[in-house]
Design a protein around this nucleic acid. Structure first.
Length: 281
DNA sequence: AAACCAGACAACCGCATGTGG
DNA sequence: CCCACATGCGGTTGTCTGGTT
């Protein structure tokens, strides 16, 4: 038994709005406001539209001070930066861009920024479970953050607003292969093994780079399968798994280091990915 | 000129959340 | 506290348009 529809679809008009409908809605809202009741508004305004549709049309198109047209580089940078921090919370991102709507930002991300960052051709690479001896960190608690850009040209942008240093020169390790063995030690050769992480390293990664939750002596709780030498808060449900060869390929790919993960497969925490990506450059 | 294709944007859908009775 | 309803939000789909073959 599904949720009851918000309106009778047989009795409401759907599809693109006509200029007459726009005028009617705009005139009504200008005159009476929304009244805090979008469901009743179309009837009162004489529109054969669903209340939700009216609301969307008003918010995304008719509302005063809507900014249309090309996104500036500054706006792009804001979107990229905020996406790296909070993921696809378009409403929050849009609130940082005066005049832009969440729908606009979302469309802009999907049609422009994603391509710009990830490049063409490999933008939909789905990761297999084939594993080698590299590593990443999986964040099972935040599936919404499932992809993140890794493009050298966007480095300065991300650095400027992120608390996480994206410039690899700021990292203590010059590259991936030297970074990981010092910090994450495999305790098994199987592909889904977890890794021991020394408390010192964990502390360092948390405080210096904020890519892990606090170590156990700073936060309580241990997750199943987590390394005994360093506990992690249960809330974060982090575990360590190896990178696959395909993941390596994607990270080091020929399309500008762009990659994207399939949320249905496994979810990656953006900051961890960025950290590892930084080490690869 | 027609068919096809891809990109961009508008609109819809359904779940999550907030709120008032 | 619970329930019903309205709104907010993000993902997805539909439609239009311009470019290419």
């Amino acid at each position: 038994m599904g949720r009851a529809p918000c309106c009778d679809k047989a009795k409401v008009k759907r599809g693109p709005w006509s200029t007459e409908e726009d005028e009617t809605l705009k005139n009504y809202v200008d005159k009476y406001g929304t009244g805090g009741n979008w469901i009743a508004l179309p009837h009162k305004a004489g529109l054969k539209r669903c209340g939700k549709s009216c609301r969307l049309r008003w918010l995304n198109y008719l509302r005063p001070h809507i900014k249309r047209g090309v996104f500036t580089e500054e706006e792009d940078n804001t979107i990229i930066s905020l996406y790296a921090k909070i993921g696809s919370r378009w409403a929050v991102i849009a609130s940082n861009l005066p005049g832009r709507t969440d729908n606009d930002v979302k469309n802009h991300w999907n049609t422009k920024i994603k391509k710009k960052l990830f490049g063409s051709g490999r933008s939909s690479t789905h990761l297999s479970s084939t594993k080698t001896n590299h590593h990443t960190v999986v964040n099972a608690s935040n599936p919404s953050i499932s992809s993140i850009s890794l493009h050298p040209s966007s480095t300065s942008t991300l650095t400027s607003t992120n608390h996480f240093p994206i410039d690899h020169h700021q990292l203590p390790f010059s590259n991936f292969s030297t970074f990981l063995p010092q910090t994450i030690m495999p305790n098994s050769s199987t592909h889904d093994s977890c890794y021991n992480l020394t408390t010192t390293d964990h502390h360092h990664l948390h405080h210096a780079y904020n890519i892990l939750p606090p170590p156990s002596h700073e936060a309580s709780g241990t997750i199943p399968g987590s390394p005994s030498s360093s506990s992690i808060t249960a809330d974060h449900k982090l575990k360590y798994v190896p990178f696959s060869s395909m993941e390596d390929d994607v990270l080091l790919g020929d399309s500008g280091f762009g990659f994207e993960f399939d949320p249905g497969d496994v979810s990656y925490c953006s900051q961890e990915i960025k950290a590892l990506g930084s080490c690869l450059w």
